[in-house]
Amino acid sequence: MSIQHFRVALIPFFAAFCLPVFAHPETLVKVKDAEDQLGARVGYIELDLNSGKILESFRPEERFPMMSTFKVLLCGAVLSRVDAGQEQLGRRIHYSQNDLVEYSPVTEKHLTDGMTVRELCSAAITMSDNTAANLLLTTIGGPKELTAFLHNMGDHVTRLDRWEPELNEAIPNDERDTTMPAAMATTLRKLLTGELLTLASRQQLIDWMEADKVAGPLLRSALPAGWFIADKSGAGERGSRGIIAALGPDGKPSRIVVIYTTGSQATMDERNRQIAEIGASLIKHW
């Protein structure tokens, strides 16, 4: 067993022997301040990774656009098919120029040779490549099948209805392509620590998230040296922004954090800054 596999296998073990965790309302004060600064709703939840206990939450059962955070769930569904012998990570998928959609920095470079399922998941999570996500959605049967996968996990809230990039439209009061912070946090925890996926697939999923290259201005910008984070960000229309993450000190994750916002007129930089400040408060009061 590799060191990384050992780390993920012992996530519940280490967490069980940690000192009790206590909620700190100071972080919620910052979440509410972010709402004021952005002029928009902000949803927040913080779960203990081992027990699933909610440590703090704000608007945990209000719907927010998922945006690209759905790509972690998508690759979880792909990995479940791999575990069941219905898919192979090494299978190569070929596609054409007509398949390319807006923001496809990886797939646009491989029109000639195609990409493997493993490479597509890596591109979808680490670079948020939209064509990679659409190609992977095709392998599982489309958005409705991802929703069905989530329902089978016990998540009857999260739903995907459309493809990239239309799913980022974020129309107010439109339930399409949305989740709730509580539902997303619980589902992410199941994917990373539950028995739904094999140990190898859980490790692969967290490795992809740990290698995320496009979430630097968010929670990662607030992390002290030595902290662990595996995350996936999302951005959408109407001032929408979000991030889902597993993080913790001492090089291992111990909490799940989900943050979503929508309806702001603020710039992307300002949305990023507010999420980073929430992260800084979380870490300060850990």
Rank of each mutant, 00 (worst) to 15 (best):
G279N: 14
L136E: 07
V29F: 13
T193W: 05
F64K: 14
L137K: 10
T107P: 01
T147P: 11
Q97G: 05
N134P: 04
K71N: 08
A133C: 08
P224W: 15
E175L: 01
L160S: 11
A245H: 02
A148M: 15
E270L: 15
F64G: 12
V101E: 08
H156S: 04
H94Q: 12
K190F: 14
L219P: 13
E102V: 05
I283T: 15
I278G: 15
L199S: 04
P224K: 00
G141H: 13
N50Y: 08
I244P: 10
T179A: 10
F64N: 08
L146Q: 06
S57E: 15
R255L: 04
G90T: 10
R92A: 09
D155N: 03
I259A: 09
L191Q: 03
L223K: 09
L55V: 06
I259K: 01
Q265Y: 15
E145I: 14
L223M: 10
N130Q: 05
W286L: 06
K32Q: 06
K190P: 15
A182N: 14
P217D: 02
G239S: 06
D231V: 08
A276V: 03
R91P: 07
D33W: 08
A34D: 14
T158E: 00
R118S: 15
G236L: 09
A276W: 03
R176I: 05
D99L: 13
G85N: 04
L28N: 05
T198Q: 03
L38I: 11
L150N: 10
E119K: 14
L191A: 04
S51L: 12
E169Y: 07
T112V: 12
G236Q: 14
H151G: 08
K144M: 10
A246Q: 03
D212Y: 11
T261I: 04
L205K: 12
M268V: 14
S281I: 13
T147K: 11
A266T: 15
Q37G: 08
D113K: 07
K53C: 02
T107V: 02
A276L: 04
R238D: 04
S233P: 05
Q203L: 15
R202K: 06
M209G: 10
R91Y: 11
P65T: 03
R255W: 08
L79F: 10
V29Q: 03
V82R: 10
V101D: 00
H94N: 14
L135W: 09
K284R: 07
A183S: 09
N272V: 11
E164P: 10
G216D: 08
V72H: 01
C121D: 10
R189D: 03
W227M: 02
T112P: 11
K71T: 07
Y95V: 00
H94P: 12
E237A: 10
M180I: 00
K30L: 14
Q86G: 10
P105Q: 12
Y44A: 08
P172K: 02
G226N: 07
I206M: 15
T116G: 10
R202F: 09
E166K: 12
G141K: 02
A34R: 05
F228Q: 14
P172S: 04
I229W: 06
L47G: 01
P65G: 09
L247G: 01
M180A: 01
G279C: 13
M180K: 00
R189H: 13
R92N: 09
G52M: 01
Y103N: 00
A183V: 05
L167W: 08
I256N: 11
E270D: 15
T116R: 11
A222N: 13
G90F: 14
A34C: 01
L89G: 02
I275C: 09
G52T: 01
I54K: 07
Q97H: 08
G248D: 05
L28I: 15
P249F: 00
T107I: 07
L73P: 11
N130P: 01
G226V: 08
R238V: 07
F228T: 11
R159K: 03
R41W: 14
K190N: 15
L218A: 01
L199C: 01
D174Y: 05
T126Y: 00
E277T: 13
G234C: 07
I256V: 15
D269G: 05
D207K: 03
T69E: 03
S201E: 14
F149H: 13
M268Y: 05
S122R: 14
T138D: 12
K109G: 12
R238E: 07
R118E: 14
Y44Q: 13
Y260K: 04
R220Q: 04
I278H: 14
